[in-house]
């Protein structure tokens, strides 16, 4: 059980981190730039963080 609750806690921390990464001011750092493929950097940033969150969730859920 200690492992399970630690993972649950880990996921909650990831959620909190995600909320911070998806909001001002961190989000504004990527604003206004242009990234690879000419796509807006803001978009790439959001999808990148999003993907990392999903990977963390997949790793932590076991």
């Amino acid at each position: 059980m200690p492992n399970t609750s630690r993972r649950v806690l880990g996921l909650a921390v990831v959620a909190l981190l995600g909320f911070a990464l998806f909001n001002f001011p961190l989000l504004s750092l990527a604003d206004g730039h242009s990234g690879p493929l000419g796509a807006p950097a803001l978009l790439l940033y959001i999808f990148g963080v999003w993907a990392v969150l999903i990977v963390l969730a997949a790793v932590l859920r076991r």
């Binding site: 993972r7 649950v8 996921l11 909650a12 990831v14 959620a15 995600g18 909320f19 998806f22 807006p40 803001l42 978009l43 959001i46 999003w50 969150l53 999903i54 969730a57 859920r61």
Partner: peptide
């Protein structure tokens, strides 16, 4: 613009809380 995204970012964060 990217204003369509928060509606999906919220559930993503929520899903991380589901195990509890």
């Amino acid at each position: 613009g990217i204003g369509f995204l928060p509606i999906y970012l919220g559930p993503t964060l929520m899903a991380l809380l589901w195990p509890t």
